[in-house]
Design a protein around this nucleic acid. Sequence first.
DNA 1: CTCTTGATCTTCT
DNA 2: GAAGATCAAGAGC
Length: 218
Amino acid sequence: MQRLEGFHPFYRDSHLKMVQNPKPAEVPAPRLGKPLRRGFFSRSVHEVAPDLIGATLLVGDVGGIIVEVEAYHHTDPAAHSYNGPTPRNRVMFGPPGFAYVYRSYGIHWCVNFVCEAKGSASAVLIRALQPTHGLAAMRRRRGLQDERALCSGPGKLCQALGITISHNEVPLDIPPFTLHARFAKPDIVTGVRIGITKAVDLPWRYGLKGSRFLSKPF
DNA sequence: CTCTTGATCTTCT
DNA sequence: GAAGATCAAGAGC
């Protein structure tokens, strides 16, 4: 059945909203949980990774809710630390609670959180955020408007938050980094990791169930 | 929607 | 010289 667009109820409602509020102010940023301290990361990477889902990551006053991560460990052939320390990955062999930032495909930056204990060389790759703070800055840095495209990938979120090699080996509990705990444990989904060619079957990708801000569906 | 490809730098063989 | 924890744009369906 064909209807005139102007009479479609959905169209009428959204049009009314736009007329009443043509340029809606930014949605107020959600309340933040208590700051995560460095000790949060002194556990198995497979405990930390799912516990990061729902936490809020800020760099300065820009960031969002972590909705997707992946776990890596030095015994894992897919990990950058698998073959031992190098200048690039040396921060992973140090104490937990620091950032490991690396160049991806010559173009992008990606950020990890170092976990466990000194020498364990394990880390959580941050793969996607739901943007909540500093949307205007993210849109400017990314050159995009679409909220869903701002932080839906490890390279994208680093660009949106301004993370570069200058953040490598930087502590995660001191500005510019701040992490805030979630208020309740969310429903978490797991799956195989994205974009790797070794250890492809390990289910060490963790995501917020039902999130619209994932890099890819689970 | 899916698939393909180019961009471009670091690390490792 | 090749591969890589990626992304965006373009072609095809």
